[in-house]
Design a protein around this nucleic acid. Structure first.
Length: 154
DNA sequence: CTTTTGATGCCCT
DNA sequence: GGGCATCAAAAGA
């Protein structure tokens, strides 16, 4: 994903403008502006003391994005281990803020291209090969019942 | 192992 | 000054 470190995305959540848990729900602001750009853009924001990143989807102005909640480290494990020093291996990238810390994603990457920018996402083998299960999203207080969290089962 | 609870920094209003 | 798409530590089973 970033200069030699990366992994497979295994858990995501979908957010749409029409739905109140979405940052784009109340219109475009300075913080969420990159969410309204064209699909393939990276949307990075800060929450508490952590950084989270989204894959923007849909056409420009759509306010549609997918939060990356968890990955499995594959590339640059040493560097990830160094950034996540002191934690156990399964705690390295099993949360939105954790994976950004592990990969070195920061606010400076907000609005960059996921196709040709410093942070990239691409499709590997077909996700249909893994079983994808949906459930309610986590850590939010609005629209809690929408089953828009997706993860790979083993 | 799972669930709960409190501490946090920072952007936005 | 409020609110938050979280984290990590502590408690329960």
């Amino acid at each position: 994903m970033v200069d030699g470190v990366g992994g497979r995305i295994v858990e995501t959540e979908a957010y749409h403008e029409d739905e109140p848990a979405c940052h784009a729900h109340r219109g475009e602001t300075r913080r969420n502006r990159s969410m309204f750009q064209a699909g393939g853009t990276l949307y990075v924001y800060r929450i508490h003391q952590s950084i989270c990143c989204n894959v923007v989807a849909g056409p420009a102005g759509a306010g549609l994005a997918v939060l990356v909640r968890a990955i499995v480290p594959e590339l640059g494990r040493e560097r990830i281990a160094a950034r996540r020093a002191g934690r156990r291996e399964r705690e390295w990238t099993n949360g939105p803020g954790k994976l950004c810390a592990a990969l070195g994603i920061g606010l400076e990457h907000d609005g960059t291209s996921l196709i040709e920018g410093p942070v990239q996402v691409w499709q590997g083998e077909s996700p249909a090969e893994g079983r994808i299960v949906a459930g309610p999203r986590i850590g939010i207080s609005k629209a809690v019942d929408l089953p828009w969290r997706f993860l790979l089962s083993d």
